[in-house]
Structures are given as structure tokens and as C-alpha cells.
Design a binder for these strands. Structure first.
Length: 294
DNA sequence: TATATTGTTACACC
DNA sequence: TGGTGTAACAATAT
């Protein structure tokens, strides 16, 4: 499931290969993955446009395109199982996302619902097994905010992520659980199930704790750890869950550093003698050590 | 066959 | 009424 570190990793990889490329054609095999614009308009506006930058906002990835001085942004959300794979047609693949067994053996494959062909023969595939992801086209970058139903909070790796503001934002909803607050993108973006669970473990806070029962010291620890864990994960190209596939070693190594995520029934890594518990909050799986996390 | 998964929405409840 | 929680939905691999 791509969260901030995974999307940022893909962005960095694509940035190295997509800049200055011109789209020669777009193939859509499943119309519904293109949202907010008709398929003919989508194709028409993209054909002969040139990519000039890559950006990330929360878990969305944007490619800046230009055609006759007209600017636009091609925006992707990979949701659970989306992939963005660059194929230079010389056996080199870049990008990635959720691993699908054997999905790189042949491209396009049955999950390649949208893909872009460039003038130089290379291609960018948007694959999505579950088809929950989407791609759209917006006129100006600021419109990216409107693509999310809930107002998007601060980027945790930017200078705008400030402790006081973070606490104030959380305290607006004192009765909800901290896990839910981290997940819903209002106070901080980019944190999903993996990093919510991991950062709460490292902060010694149970996912089930209500905001109103968390003190300043704990908020401070959590704030520091969120930044730390996301940075660390980006530096090792994120987390891969499930089948390891290493086309070119492009998959995340953070998986090896996971301390509670998907470790239910295993002993707590702090050697406290307890087993990690799995519990659902708002129908999402959380994992925690009942002894270490208060 | 049941389950897992995310973001969103619909709706029940106090 | 608003804040909160729960369930359903999209689709498909395991």
C-alpha cells in the first residue's frame, strides 16, 4: 500500500527518467480509472504534451505537463494496489508500487489499465490490480487539494509541519482515537496503516487512546517519531509488503524495520514478554504491544 | 469461501 | 445539530 515514503520513492525514480519526455499517445483499457474528465478529452490534452516536473502531495503523485505553453498536471492516486512503472523498452524498469506476482514479466499485462507512450518509444504503465486507484488531469497545481474529500493537512517532511500546530489540530477532535487521527489526513498527510502503527509503537502510545487523554510530552514524541520514521523509510525506498519482487532492487527495504505492523501473535520486539495484539479500529487493523504501549 | 485492503459515503446514535 | 462510530462499497488475489 503506497503511503508517503512509497509514493515519494516512485516520484524520485520517475523524476530521473520522465523529464522532457513527450507523450505521443495514451492507451486506456479501463475507462473508469480516469476520473473527472472524459476519456477523449484526457487523451486529446495529453497527446503531444511534454513532462516538465514531478510532484507529490500527500499520497498523490503529479506529473507537470506542458503543451504550447499550456500547463496541466496529470495526477495519480495508487490507493491500495496501484503501480507506476516506467519501461524504457530496453529491459530497464523503474517506479513501482504494490507488488503483484509476475506483473513485470510482461507489459502491458492484465492490470495495465492506463498507459502512456512517449516519442522515444519508452512507456509509463499505470497498473492496478484492485482498480481502486485513479488518474486525472487538472489545469493548475493548486487544484490537487480538491481531489481529496477531506481537507488535506500538512506535509510531515516540510518546514510547515510544526509541533504546536499539530497538537492544536489533533485537539479539535478530542474524543477520537489517535490512530484514526493519524490515518485521516487532516492534521498530517501521508501516514497510512503501516506508519500509523509503527509510529505509535515507537511513541509507546496505544492506537486506541483518545486524543483528550494524551499529554504534551506524548504528542511531542509522536511528532518527532513521525518525521523520523518517514524520513528513514524514504531513505530506504519505502516498505514492500507481500511478495518481494525485485525487478531492479526497486522495492522497499523498510519492511525489515517494521516492529509491530503485521506482527500479531509475535513477541514484542522490546522483549517485554508480551505478544503483539491485532485489533480493528474503524474496520482497519491496528497492531500494538499491550504492555509497552500505554 | 471468507478475508483483506483504502478512501469515501451513508446512516445510526447520542 | 454535530461529533462520532459502524458498515458498505469499489475489485480480486490468496
Amino acid at each position: 500500500m503506497p503511503e508517503l515514503p512509497e509514493v515519494e520513492t516512485i516520484r524520485r525514480q520517475l523524476d530521473k527518467v520522465l523529464l522532457q519526455k513527450t507523450i505521443s499517445s495514451v492507451e486506456i483499457r479501463l475507462n473508469k480509472q480516469v476520473k473527472g474528465i472524459t476519456v477523449p478529452d484526457f487523451k486529446k490534452q495529453l497527446t503531444n504534451s511534454k513532462i516538465f516536473e514531478t510532484r507529490r502531495r500527500a499520497k498523490m503523485l503529479a506529473l507537470g505537463i506542458k503543451k504550447n505553453k499550456q500547463v496541466g498536471y496529470l495526477v495519480f492516486h495508487l490507493k491500495m494496489t496501484g503501480q507506476l512503472i516506467f519501461d524504457n523498452q530496453h529491459g530497464e524498469l523503474k517506479g513501482g508500487g504494490h507488488p503483484i506476482k509476475n506483473s513485470l514479466e510482461k507489459l502491458p499485462n492484465k492490470y495495465s489499465h492506463v498507459f502512456f507512450k512517449f516519442k522515444d518509444g519508452s512507456r509509463l504503465y499505470f497498473n492496478d490490480m484492485r482498480q481502486f486507484g485513479w488518474v486525472t488531469l487538472i489545469d493548475k497545481y493548486s487544484d490537487i487539494e480538491g481531489l481529496s474529500a477531506t481537507p488535506l493537512g500538512v506535509e510531515p517532511l516540510s518546514k510547515d509541519f510544526k509541533l504546536e500546530q499539530f497538537i492544536m489540530c489533533l485537539k479539535k477532535r478530542p474524543r477520537i482515537r489517535i490512530y484514526q487521527a493519524l490515518m485521516d489526513q487532516r492534521c498530517v498527510v501521508g501516514v497510512g496503516n503501516i506508519y500509523a502503527n509503527e509510529s505509535l509503537f515507537l511513541s509507546d502510545i496505544r492506537p486506541t487512546r483518545r486524543i483528550k487523554n494524551i499529554n504534551k510530552q506524548e504528542f511531542t514524541k509522536l511528532y518527532t517519531i513521525i518525521k523520523q520514521i518517514l524520513r528513514r523509510s524514504v531513505s530506504v525506498r519505502g516498505t514492500t509488503i507481500g511478495n518481494y519482487m525485485d525487478a531492479l532492487g526497486d522495492y522497499g527495504k523498510f519492511s525489515k524495520q517494521l516492529k509491530v505492523y503485521q506482527r500479531d501473535e509475535e513477541p514484542c520486539v522490546n522483549k517485554c514478554g508480551n505478544l503483539v495484539i491485532r485489533k480493528k479500529i474503524n474496520s482497519r487493523s491496528t497492531f500494538y504491544c499491550p504492555k509497552c504501549q500505554k
